[in-house]
Design a protein around this nucleic acid. Structure first.
Lengths: 199, 199
DNA sequence: ACGCTACGCTACGGTAGCGTAGCGTTAGTT
DNA sequence: AACTAACGCTACGCTACCGTAGCGTAGCGT
């Protein structure tokens, strides 16, 4: 499931390049607007203006604004690379720092607040956002799993819980308290979590 | 700072009861709408209809919708009671369960997603929401502080970090992954955090 | 009982966004 | 070169919401 769930006959080849161009421009503009102006600011007309694609053309491709936004979110699924040196602590700090950076800068993190509300009343959106954060979550759980297999962590370690403890504070700081997650904070975080589960 | 930061001459007495009634009805309706329909659904006209207060009257009391919402959030500052038996683990589980319940049911938690986006582009709102979550945070930190004073936790324990670890997963589950925080999960959470910091 | 004031109501003017229709033009396809 | 499909553009009709004005009514204080 690379990019879509909808069937659309547009596999790759044999697709009018005009369609590809329009779709790409519109989706890109949509993401940018979500990040900049939030849900309320992401209107079809604004997308049209920024993308250079006519509003009517947008409606030829998507039924409604909601569908458009949903589609645009698919492009943001970029799982972070998993570092895999031998040092669990160092790896986790690296990964958490990368996540913290992404939460402060990347497009999908700026989209997060905008979509959080929409998710409250839109099941598809809720699912999508859970997927987005899930991708990040899995990368941590996998690294922890490797450590468990290697004997660094005990066999009974609750990897899901550890993942929560490692990354949830970063999300909360981004969304609610709006404090920066400094390297010092992250080191203390990883250290605290590892201490509780390694011995 | 009980409920407001604005000066408004309306101390208690010597205020036209009509004003009090109108204000109360409007604020209550605003909170309800934020919870039900989110930021976008909370229009002045909707507030007017639900509260039974005329739109013109609302504008006589508040300059704009933003000010109204800001004001409405003040009423939600209800810090949870701090349990204080001797058992730290039990107390934390109780408090965390209460928080989890509140996150699933209370008005202010249903308001949270709605306001999260607004906060992205409204400094006052961001501050207010940080205050709201801060109230919860402090109650945990205080309980931990008491434990540290009693010698249950080591003198060097990072109470702020522990608070993050204890409650942030609850917020994330509510806002992003939308999983329920079961008692089992909370027990594992508290247990994990205490283990890492008590020995 | 009287004056003051908050209130409700109706009616605005203005803006913004939704989603659609029709038509001419452009860019692919064959 | 001819056909076809996608596109841009303009112009809609519709709805929702903003914030204001004016006027009559009802409730409050004294």
């Amino acid at each position: 499931m690379a990019t879509n769930g909808r069937r659309q006959g547009t596999d790759d080849t044999s697709v009018d390049p005009r369609i590809q161009r329009s779709r790409a421009a519109v989706l890109e503009a949509t993401v940018a607007l979500l990040a900049e102006l939030g849900w309320a600011g992401t209107t079809v007309e604004a997308v049209a203006e920024r993308s250079g694609v006519a509003k009517t053309t947008i409606y030829r491709h998507w039924r409604s604004r909601d569908q458009l936004v949903l589609d645009a979110l698919d492009g943001l699924l970029t799982p972070p690379a998993i570092e895999a040196t031998g040092d669990l602590y160092a790896d986790l700090v690296t990964m958490a720092c990368a996540l913290a950076d992404a939460l402060e800068q990347s497009a999908w993190s700026r989209v997060l607040p905008a979509v959080t509300e929409g998710a409250e009343r839109n099941q598809q959106l809720a699912t999508r956002i859970a997927e987005l954060t899930g991708v990040v979550r899995v990368s941590f759980t996998r690294r922890l799993g490797a450590a468990r297999d290697a004997g660094t962590l005990p066999a009974g370690a609750d990897l899901g819980l550890m993942t929560h403890l490692l990354i949830d504070p970063l999300f909360v700081r981004r969304l609610l308290t709006r404090e920066r997650s400094t390297t010092r904070f992250i080191e203390a975080l990883v250290d605290g979590v590892l201490r509780s589960f390694s011995s």
